[in-house]
C-alpha cells in the first residue's frame, strides 16, 4: 500500500480520478458513452478531444522545461500557424500536403528563432521566448489583416473534427506525437541528454555533450508541436482567430508539466505524467461547464483545485501533514 502511494503516478492519477468522480454527483451524464456514426461519443471523449491542443504544447514544453528553459511563445505560434493555414486555404495553394508542410515550417522556423536566441546568444529563455509571444500575435494579426480568417475546406477541417479508429482526429494526432516523442526520449539516450543538460549544463559539457545543440533542438520540437496544435485548433473551428487562438494556452501547458511533477529548474520530466496533468486541467474545465456552476466562480474553483494538487505533491507539505496525522491521528484518512 505504501509502495503504491509513493509511486510517482499515484497522486496525479488520484487527483484526476477525484475530479472525474465529482461528476458522478454533479452530472451523471458525464460517463455516458455511445457509438454514433462510427465514432465514440460522450463527455469523456470530449475531455480527451479538448485536451489535445494543450497536450501537444505540453509535450514540447516538457522537453524545454527539462533543459531548464521555458517557452512562452507557443500560444503565439499557434496563432501564426492558424493564420498561415487559413490564408493558404483561401489562396490558390490549397492542397493539403502543402498547407501542412507550410504550417510545420512556420512552427520550426519559430522554434529555431527561440532556440538560437537561447543557445547561441545566451538570452534567458523567459525573455527570449517572450519576444515571440508578444510579436507572434502581431504577426498573426498582420497575416490575417486584423480579421478572423475563415475557410471552407473539408479535408483540412477533418484534422480538427474528423475521426480515426472511432476517436476524434485530434486525440489520435496527440497520441501519435506523444508515442513518437516518448519513444525517442526513453528508448534512445536523447531523454538522458536532455535531463543531463538541464540538471548540470557544465558537467554535461565536460562529459562531451553538446548542450547548445540540445537546447536548440528542444525549442525546435516545441515549435513543431505548437504548429500541430495550431492546425488542430484552426481546423476545429474552420477559422483562424489571431487574437484568441491559443491565448494563454502556454500557461496551461506549463501548468500541466508542473502538475506532472517536473521541476521548473530542469533536469527531470515525465511525459506520461504531463499528459495526466493536461487531462486534470481539461477534466476540470469540462466539469465546470457540465455542473452549471455560475461562471464567475470558474477561475476560483480551478485555482483552488490546482493549489490542492500542487500542495499534495509538495514533499514538505506532505511531511507536515503526516506529522499532524501522526500526532492527532485525525487526518489519517484525508491524505
Amino acid at each position: 500500500m505504501t509502495n503504491l502511494m509513493q509511486h510517482r503516478l499515484f497522486l496525479p492519477l488520484l487527483a484526476l480520478a477525484l475530479i472525474l468522480l465529482a461528476n458522478l454527483v454533479l452530472s451523471p451524464e458525464f460517463f455516458h458513452l455511445e457509438v454514433k456514426d462510427g465514432r465514440v461519443y460522450g463527455s469523456l471523449v470530449d475531455v480527451l478531444n479538448r485536451s489535445a491542443p494543450c497536450a501537444l504544447l505540453a509535450i514540447g514544453m516538457s522537453l524545454v522545461i527539462a533543459t531548464g528553459g521555458i517557452d512562452l511563445s507557443v500560444g503565439a505560434i499557434v496563432a501564426i500557424t492558424g493564420a498561415v493555414c487559413a490564408n493558404l486555404l483561401n489562396s490558390s495553394f490549397d492542397t493539403l500536403p502543402l498547407v501542412i508542410l507550410a504550417a510545420l515550417a512556420v512552427g520550426l522556423a519559430a522554434g529555431m528563432v527561440n532556440g538560437s536566441l537561447v543557445s547561441i546568444f545566451g538570452i534567458q529563455p523567459i525573455v527570449a521566448t517572450l519576444v515571440l509571444m508578444v510579436a507572434g500575435r502581431g504577426i498573426a494579426q498582420l497575416i490575417n489583416s486584423g480579421q478572423i480568417a475563415t475557410f471552407q475546406n473539408d479535408t483540412f477541417a477533418s484534422i480538427g473534427i474528423g475521426s480515426l479508429l472511432g476517436l476524434p482526429a485530434p486525440v489520435v494526432i496527440a497520441a501519435v506525437v506523444f508515442l513518437l516523442v516518448q519513444f525517442a526520449m526513453r528508448f534512445t539516450a536523447l531523454g538522458l541528454f536532455i535531463e543531463a543538460s538541464g540538471c548540470n549544463p557544465r558537467a554535461s559539457h565536460y562529459l562531451g555533450l553538446n548542450v547548445r545543440v540540445i537546447k536548440f533542438l528542444v525549442y525546435c520540437v516545441s515549435g513543431l508541436c505548437a504548429a500541430i496544435a495550431g492546425m488542430v485548433i484552426t481546423a476545429d473551428i474552420q477559422g483562424a482567430d489571431a487574437n484568441n487562438a491559443g491565448l494563454w494556452l502556454e500557461l496551461d501547458a506549463i501548468l500541466a508539466v508542473v502538475l506532472g511533477g517536473a521541476a521548473l529548474s530542469g533536469g527531470r520530466f515525465s511525459l506520461p505524467l504531463t499528459m495526466i496533468g493536461v487531462l486534470i486541467i481539461q477534466a476540470m474545465s469540462t466539469t465546470i461547464i457540465m455542473s452549471g456552476i455560475e461562471p464567475k466562480y470558474n477561475l476560483i474553483i480551478k485555482s483552488l483545485v490546482i493549489l490542492v494538487v500542487l500542495l499534495l505533491q509538495s514533499p514538505s507539505f506532505r511531511q507536515q501533514l503526516r506529522g499532524l496525522s501522526g500526532a492527532r491521528n485525525s487526518l489519517g484518512g484525508k491524505a
Partner: peptide, 25 residues
C-alpha cells in the same frame, strides 16, 4: 436551463455547447 461563459470566442462557444448538448440528453 444552462448558462456559462464562452468568452466571446468561436472555439469556446463550440466547447461549451458540446458539453451542454451532452448534459441535456
Amino acid at each position: 436551463i444552462r448558462t456559462q461563459t464562452a468568452e466571446f470566442t468561436r472555439s469556446k462557444g463550440k466547447e461549451v455547447m458540446e458539453a451542454f448538448i451532452k448534459a441535456e440528453q
